[in-house]
Simulated assay, not measured.
Amino acid sequence: MFLSRLLEPVKSAAQEAGAELWQLYQSGNFQQQQKADLSPVTSADIVANHIIINRLSELTPNIPIISEESYLVPLAQRQDWPRYWLIDPMDGTQEFVARSGDFAVSIALVERGWPALGVIYWPKENVMYYACRGNGAFKQQRNLINRIRVNEYQVGDTLKIAISRRQPLQPIINLLQNNNQVEYIALGSCSLKSCLIAEGKADCYLRLGPTGEWDTGAVHVIVEEAGGKILDSEFNALSYNQRDTLGNPDFMVMGQASIPWQQLIKSRPTQRNLKT
């Protein structure tokens, strides 16, 4: 009941932030800078961050917030938090700058170290993906709401792999046990590619390189409630709020949790990409 009461206000906050991002995107009225890790950040990220933090602080004043665009509380102070908000005010800043439109707002509630509620809003398409633990995953476009499930993939079918618009393809090809019968689907934004898996439009997404826990928090519960899973590159579970930085290892988003993914994708030593 607690999660279900939060869902609609969180969806509203994501849509409000997304609407502001879309207005700034269309007008081109934003400034761009570079972070210490060389990734881009814009004034639009900061505006969306303020909107979401204000709305969540009003909704749940006693629940702390971790955001990609805010000061990171030291691990010693946060490691025992029973629950916290984990947000990325704009996942896909590079796509925003590059004018592809493939960027999204990401909001998750993490409880006892595991994502329990997730909302992803895609302003360009006016699409909302969301899930609460134990209640299924859904896609909302305007007033139409549909429950989503991963693709019923069978070994031997064409494997549909979500890939980045801006990263080389060969490292992904190298991870496949068999390069035959593979189709690649390009899309920006880490969270939007993961949502392709959740709604059955792709079968897996192999992420190499730096990401933060805010890139997986919301989609983690959405993908799992849709019947898939997210694991690191050694097929182990991801963890949340257990490291000084909130950097993820390389990870894989996989549909149809029951199929033998290790027959399709090579295991490899986990690279800890400590994105701060």
Results as ranks from 00 to 15, higher is better:
238 L>M: 13
243 R>Y: 11
266 K>T: 05
228 G>M: 00
226 A>W: 07
236 N>C: 10
248 N>P: 02
25 Y>V: 00
167 Q>F: 15
45 D>T: 02
90 M>H: 00
36 A>H: 12
36 A>Q: 13
190 C>F: 15
234 E>Y: 06
99 R>H: 08
65 I>R: 08
88 D>Q: 12
99 R>K: 10
170 Q>A: 08
122 W>V: 07
13 A>Y: 05
24 L>F: 00
17 A>S: 10
38 L>Q: 10
206 L>V: 01
10 V>N: 01
126 N>V: 09
262 Q>G: 08
204 C>T: 00
66 I>G: 04
180 N>H: 13
219 V>C: 14
155 V>S: 02
128 M>Q: 13
27 S>M: 07
22 W>D: 06
97 V>K: 03
59 L>P: 11
103 F>P: 04
111 E>Y: 09
46 I>A: 00
274 L>R: 08
75 L>G: 08
64 P>R: 03
248 N>S: 09
148 I>F: 07
221 V>R: 15
229 K>E: 09
111 E>S: 03
163 I>H: 14
11 K>E: 02
115 P>I: 04
90 M>E: 05
169 L>G: 09
191 S>M: 03
140 Q>G: 06
247 G>F: 13
6 L>V: 13
190 C>D: 15
27 S>T: 01
197 I>G: 01
135 N>R: 10
190 C>S: 12
158 T>N: 12
180 N>S: 03
80 D>F: 01
134 G>M: 01
125 E>S: 07
79 Q>K: 02
96 F>H: 03
9 P>W: 05
260 P>W: 03
185 I>L: 08
273 N>Y: 00
201 K>I: 07
41 V>G: 05
269 P>Q: 10
225 E>S: 11
94 Q>E: 15
82 P>K: 11
221 V>I: 15
211 T>P: 00
114 W>Y: 15
276 T>L: 12
113 G>I: 05
